[in-house]
Amino acid sequence: MAYADLLARLRAGLDPVTVGAFPDGSVDDYYRLRDGATTVASREAFATAITAGRDSFQLAHVRTEAGGQAVNAARQAAALGDDVTLIGHLDHPAFDADFGFETASMGAPARVRVCLFDADDVMFVEESADLSAWTFADLRTVLAEPVADFLERDALCCTNWASTPGLGDAMHEIAARDPDGGVFCVDPGPLTTAGARNLLDALRPLGDAYEVVVSVNEDEASRLAAATDGGASEDPTAAGTLDAVRSAAGATGVVVHGTAAAVAATPAGRTAVPTLDVSRALTETGAGDRFSAALARSLADGWEWDLAVAAGNACASHYVTGAGTATPATLADHVATHRPT
């Protein structure tokens, strides 16, 4: 069983790998939505109130934190003991605290307002002009190390395609440099079908330089499936569907982190690892980024796919419980408590 093997690995100690994360960043404000004295606890309740004619709600601030997909991924890899460099959009006082790993900023972050619901949060995003205008040259300019060294880290977490129009050209430039790359894990964020098609086109050239891994949720997997020759599928995790996405991307693997299980299409076939049964605390926002980081660093360390997927599941669920970003010790306790019997 993957979780038993994961627990043994965690207790034996992890071998550090080198990880790079880029290019986004955001300042995340979390709110509860109130209708008078009543907390609006679900999307359905919100929709019902809107449909009934309610046109005014109150936002009760809960907390503000430095976030973004690349930031969350970097935090997770660093917490697991890896050598991390984050190149993001971090020009805001929220990012002034010492992360404990190397960072460099390419401009102002996005501003995200997260409306907390019991089951599925909603995000309202104020885009960053710096991120919208980002190019690979911005990354080269701020790097403290040679660009080849960054591109040849054991794992790269490339995030937020949806908010970064320059990533397509950047991927082509990276591929043209022909680095001796490791794992290139892409967590694209919310996709349109057109965006999914462009992403698949941009990923294909990277396959000659990296083990390309696409890490998505079920909705994003559906968008990618719709962009392939096979078209949309009722089950985005079906073997044929994921294989079609993997082929269209020229990827080594495609992983869908779903509610009940994470499913991967790999060179050895389809593998599925059930998620850990945990109770949600404040939010699930950021859990998928931690999944991708754990997946990428585990594959870079030479782990088998089912074990790497289990590590992703475990880090995501650890965060969902409100326990924060997992370290090897806290993750081992978490797996021991919640693994399937």
Rank of each mutant, 00 (worst) to 15 (best):
A97S: 15
R246W: 11
A227M: 11
V256I: 07
C115A: 11
S215F: 10
A49T: 02
L7R: 06
A133E: 07
L6E: 05
A94C: 08
V335Q: 04
S298V: 10
L33D: 01
D35P: 09
A78R: 04
A78T: 01
A119C: 10
F117A: 14
G67K: 10
H89G: 00
S279N: 12
S215Q: 11
G67F: 15
G322W: 07
V263K: 08
S279G: 05
L151N: 03
A296C: 04
T38D: 15
A78H: 13
G207M: 05
A110N: 12
A45H: 03
A133P: 06
V183T: 09
R197Q: 14
V17H: 10
G302C: 06
S42G: 12
G250E: 00
Q58I: 03
W161F: 04
R32A: 15
L331V: 01
G269N: 15
D15T: 13
V114F: 06
T141Y: 06
A170K: 00
A248K: 05
D5H: 06
R290S: 12
S247W: 00
L224V: 07
A296S: 14
Q69G: 13
R9S: 04
D120V: 01
D277G: 04
R140L: 10
A37M: 02
A329V: 13
D201Y: 03
V273Y: 10
L206F: 07
G253C: 01
L199V: 02
G107R: 09
L331W: 02
T271D: 13
A97Y: 09
L139C: 03
P93L: 08
P236N: 05
C158Y: 04
A49Q: 08
F136M: 11
D277C: 09
A238G: 14
N198H: 13
G13N: 09
P340M: 05
N198Q: 13
T330F: 09
T135D: 08
A336E: 15
R75M: 03
G312L: 01
A249Y: 01
A49D: 11
H92R: 00
E284C: 13
H338I: 02
S247H: 06
S132Q: 10
A2C: 11
R153K: 12
A293Y: 02
A175Y: 09
V27T: 03
P109W: 11
R297C: 11
A293W: 04
G81Q: 15
F99Y: 13
A296Q: 07
G269R: 13
D118F: 06
A21R: 06
A272T: 14
D149L: 01
H89C: 01
A281V: 12
H338A: 02
R9N: 01
R153G: 06
E65K: 08
A311Q: 05
D121W: 08
G322R: 13
A232D: 15
P340A: 01
D229I: 11
D138G: 11
I87N: 05
Q69K: 12
R280D: 08
D333T: 12
G81D: 15
C185H: 10
D138H: 15
T271P: 05
G88M: 07
A202M: 00
D82V: 04
M171L: 12
A70I: 00
D15R: 14
L131K: 04
A316F: 04
L206D: 08
E102I: 03
T330E: 03
D229H: 06
D82N: 15
D178K: 10
A21Q: 11
R270V: 14
E145Q: 12
L86E: 05
A52R: 02
L203M: 15
G25K: 11
D121A: 13
P188N: 02
F22C: 08
A194F: 05
A155C: 04
